[in-house]
């Protein structure tokens, strides 16, 4: 019963947040200055065309009516039609989502794998010279603007050394016949390398520092001391006991990191000509393509909200002390 109630209140909360984000989005796009029709100004652009366009996209209706229509459409999973591309927004952003997700997850997996190992190592080597040098370096990588890092990597590894291609997801004109064919091809991996590396360098700091401090915590706990007393080797203690317990909270932070990363992709996708959701959002915003920008924004927001929820659930699952208060 208590579980059911908790689940119900969770769902309600989720619905409230979604509705609020949707409403904020709608208002943000409709109340801002700038006319979406400005994109079509051309010497042959006539008054009739302007009116027809306004009517086609429902912009001639009063604001509240537009809002009601917008909400109604959303409930049916209808995101409207892009001003610029004249095609359903949903189709377009869903076509781009896999690219963005692949980039996000690849970079995060690299970042977490490295961060966890390095974090554990640094905890183990606490107080050593390595640690003294490593921590400031890690902090510094988190202080770099992603696009700057991306441009520098691009200049070094692509323009100068020529190891990796400069942009896109595959070589020109190549056909891998479908989803898996592409994503498992070596060609794709070569294109993925630099953007994923850029994002990974940027995001390894969080898991690293988290892992390290958790390890330090865990290593002070009784069972570790016990293990030590039992005469197990330091390595066994660190890996078998401490690391396993320190790992769980780090994995929780993965969910939140997915949400954050998805937003950060915007910039890196532009640097590496990566056909993803973030770049589309930027382009749609600068072209005043409201439906498309709203759709892309909403999709990112939904992922962020879901990831927050997953992190919350994981957290309460792993740490029974956190109640539903």
């Amino acid at each position: 019963m208590a579980h059911l109630k908790a689940a119900l209140s969770r769902t309600l909360q989720l619905a409230l947040v979604l509705w609020a984000v949707v409403t904020i989005l709608f208002l943000m796009f409709r109340l801002m200055p700038g006319n979406p029709m400005a994109a079509y100004i051309d010497p042959t652009f006539t008054a009739e065309q302007q009116e027809a366009l306004m009517a086609q996209f429902g912009l001639d209706k009063p604001l509240w009516e537009q809002y009601v229509i917008y909400l109604g459409n959303l409930l049916q999973g209808e995101l409207g039609q892009s001003f610029r591309y004249r095609e359903p927004v949903a189709e377009r952003i869903l076509a781009l989502l896999p690219n963005t997700l692949i980039l996000t997850f690849t970079s995060l997996i690299i970042a977490y794998a490295f961060g966890i190992l390095a974090g554990a190592y640094l905890a183990w080597r606490r107080g050593s010279a390595v640690e003294k040098v490593a921590i400031p370096i890690v902090l510094t990588t988190r202080a770099m603007p992603e696009f700057w890092l991306g441009m520098v990597l691009l200049a070094i590894f692509s323009f100068w050394l020529g190891w990796f291609p400069a942009g896109g997801t595959r070589s020109a004109g190549s056909d891998y016949g479908g989803f898996w064919g592409l994503y498992t091809s070596p060609d794709f991996l070569a294109y993925l390398a630099l953007p994923a590396l850029t994002l990974a360098i940027y995001s390894q700091g969080l898991p690293l520092l988290l892992m390290r401090s958790n390890m330090l915590d865990v290593m002070k706990e009784d069972f570790v001391t016990m293990a030590r007393i039992k005469g197990l080797s330091t390595w066994t203690v660190v890996v078998r006991h401490a690391a396993r317990n320190a790992l769980l909270p780090v994995m929780t932070s993965f969910a939140i990191a997915v949400g954050y990363q998805l937003q950060g992709n915007v910039v890196v996708e532009t640097v590496f000509s990566w056909p993803g959701l973030g770049r589309e959002l930027v382009r749609a915003v600068s072209a005043s393509d409201y439906p498309l920008a709203q759709g892309a924004f909403l999709l990112i927001a939904v992922v962020v909200i879901l990831m927050n929820l997953i992190a919350d659930l994981l957290y309460s699952l792993l740490d029974p002390r956190v109640s539903h208060a």
């Binding site: 691009l154 291609p165 400069a166 942009g167 020109a172 004109g173 532009t270 640097v271 000509s273 056909p275």
Partner: peptide, 21 residues
Amino acid sequence: RWILRIVPNVEAALGMLRSGE
């Protein structure tokens, strides 16, 4: 064939021309 690549980054476009992409 005629293959159009979308490259929003100017700096990258020039780099690609030089590398043959």
